[in-house]
């Protein structure tokens, strides 16, 4: 048996065997059982990466379009590898956007794409709710690869998978999430998922970057990093966008690092077997010290590897979904 044992008894049937929705628009729409199904399926998918032939015919003949309105190497590559490992035909469309609105609307792009009958569309867009709009227009299954400040569900799923690999389950774990809580879609997806699965979530950041009513999401909120990470099983660091300084959210990167940066000294407050996570790309010396990023507690590279398995699971589970006669 592999050292990363899964919780499930091998022959225990899962509570659900399929996802209810034709799309994955956000963690908000998933039940805890569905999340478990995705993670269990990802577990099976992960093994494929260790085969000599890293391919299975499951999505043979299916067309998947990666429609990215925001540049992204990491997520797009991860999806592309996942799609190819399932033998799907992939099509990458990168749309350069400028702040001035020009050219085709998202609705028109979607209609044109729809005419070619792709089976699935993976969408990344800078506007929250873009995937919902696409889902209303297209029959294809829509996978949200990040919409504005709203959600990034596959990131949260791969984070959960990474945690579960080491900690066996999410329930009862103290998870601290530190960084730009206001603008982060990774945060939203993660707190939805972790609270659904019964983790004890602590979010931490400057008050200027704290969404209002954050506690209504079922998390503890604090601006004290010590409070957040003491006894933590998992520490997730979110990227601080350098441009936020101009919005007067905090005075300088130096000050941010001093107050909220993850340093080796601060690490000592957490549990000895703490996991350090970061969705990437990292700003070394801003939200995380280099020594911590490269240190023994960091599972950042595991997250990347697991991303492919989790995305394969999502693609597989949605590809088998019921054919819809018309868009909702």
């Amino acid at each position: 048996m592999s050292p990363h044992a899964t919780v499930h008894d091998i022959d225990q049937p899962p509570a659900v065997t399929s996802l209810r929705s034709k799309d994955l628009l956000g963690i908000a729409d998933l039940t805890p059982d569905e999340i478990t199904l995705v993670l269990d399926t990802a577990d099976a998918m992960k093994e494929i990466a260790s085969r000599p032939i890293k391919k299975v015919p499951a999505l043979r003949g299916k067309t998947v379009v990666n429609l990215f309105f925001e540049p992204s190497t990491r997520t797009r590559t991860s999806f592309e590898i996942a799609e190819k490992r399932l033998s799907a035909d992939t099509l990458n469309i990168a749309i350069a956007t400028s702040s001035v609105v020009k050219g085709e609307t998202l609705a028109d792009t979607a209609l044109n794409l729809e005419a070619m009958r792709p089976d699935m569309i993976v969408l990344r867009h800078s506007s929250s709710g873009a995937c919902h709009l696409l889902s209303r227009i297209c029959r294809s299954a829509i996978i949200n690869a990040g919409d504005g400040m709203h959600e990034h569900p596959t990131q949260a799923l791969l984070d959960a998978f990474t945690i579960r690999e080491r900690k066996r389950q999410l329930k009862g774990l103290k998870v601290a999430i530190i960084g730009d809580l206001l603008h982060s879609r990774v945060l939203r997806s993660n707190i939805l998922l972790l609270t659904k699965m019964g983790a004890d979530v602590w979010v931490c950041g400057p008050p200027t970057l704290m969404p209002p009513d954050i506690r209504r999401f079922g998390v503890n909120a604090t601006s004290s990093i010590e409070t957040a990470i003491t006894g933590a099983d998992v520490i997730m660091l979110l990227r601080i966008q350098l441009e936020r300084m101009e919005g007067a959210y905090f005075p300088s990167l130096r000050e941010y690092f001093n107050v909220f940066g993850m340093t080796e000294a601060r690490l000592k407050l957490a549990r000895p077997d703490v996991m350090i996570m970061h969705p990437g790309p990292m700003n070394r010396g801003v939200e995380i010290a280099s020594e911590v990023a490269d240190g023994p507690y960091s599972v950042i590279l595991d997250q990347v590897a697991n991303g492919v398995a989790v995305r394969m699971a999502v693609l597989y589970l949605l590809a088998g979904g019921a054919e819809h006669e018309e868009a909702a």
């Binding site: 908000a28 709710g129 504005g148 400040m149 939203r188 209002p212 209504r216």
Partner: peptide
């Protein structure tokens, strides 16, 4: 409107 629903949907809010 800056509040729980805008935060849930990832929309920028004004108080």
């Amino acid at each position: 409107h800056e509040g729980f629903y805008a935060a849930s949907l990832g929309l920028r809010g004004m108080p």
